[in-house]
Nucleic acid binder design. Structure first.
Length: 201
DNA sequence: TTCAGGATGTACT
DNA sequence: GTACATCCTGAAC
């Protein structure tokens, strides 16, 4: 086990979005909330590769109130509402004006189990069924609910408190599974792009 | 264990 | 009016 530290710098994000998506696996989401400090390891990501990607909200240069933060420089949060209920947390990547982002599809809790459990189910971690304990943050909607992330974080700078991404503190080796993105059936040829990354040990 | 159906509100056509 | 980068519940197995 190796000690690391440090907030991910701007330069981490200002790169090709597929590279950033792959390299975000194993990094930590750190959120300082009223319920305490929450930390989770990123375990699943998807890249949304800008104006040429039919699955991307900014395909063809579309620019709306919803997706405008995708046009910011890398390292800010893009949070939007889906299906009327859930928020999705994305990390904007690339240069200003290049609307790419990485969707955080899953994470594993490391600190703040009771707070995360409280946000998800309104009770402490040890009161949950085993099934729920295992499924605290294993989906993009769950990540936002469990870590207390909402649309107030849209446009937030992820290199600063209260919400930021860091290098792992405890690094264990893992391998990376690559696949197609989920639930983008509308995206024609982009359906098959290998832009989904899953951390496996 | 898998599966269908419903909930819900914005954005966009 | 339709679609949507989802999740939960309850029924059937």
């Amino acid at each position: 086990m190796e000690l690391h530290g440090g907030v991910l710098r701007r330069s981490f994000y200002v790169r090709d979005t597929v590279t950033v998506a792959r390299e975000l696996l194993g990094k930590y989401i750190v959120h300082r909330t009223r319920s305490g400090l929450l930390i989770a390891e990123i375990t699943e990501t998807e890249a949304y590769d800008g104006v040429g990607d039919k699955a991307c909200h900014a395909y063809g240069g579309r620019r709306t109130d919803r997706n405008q933060v995708m046009y910011q420089i890398g390292g800010v949060a893009y949070v939007y509402l889906i299906y009327g209920i859930y928020n999705m947390l994305n990390v904007v990547t690339g240069e200003k004006g290049d609307p790419c982002a990485v969707l955080i599809r899953g994470a594993f809790p490391l600190l703040g189990f009771d707070a995360i459990s409280g946000f998800r189910f309104g009770k402490d971690f040890d009161k949950l069924s085993r099934a729920r304990q295992r499924a605290l943050l294993n989906g993009p909607g769950k990540v936002c609910v469990g870590l207390g992330i909402g649309r107030t974080h849209n446009g937030a700078d992820l290199t600063k408190e209260p919400l930021l991404l860091t290098e792992p503190l405890f690094h264990q080796p893992f391998h990376t599974q690559v696949g197609k993105r989920i639930n983008i059936d509308y995206a024609e040829e982009a359906v098959d792009f290998p832009y989904r990354f899953v951390l496996c040990r």
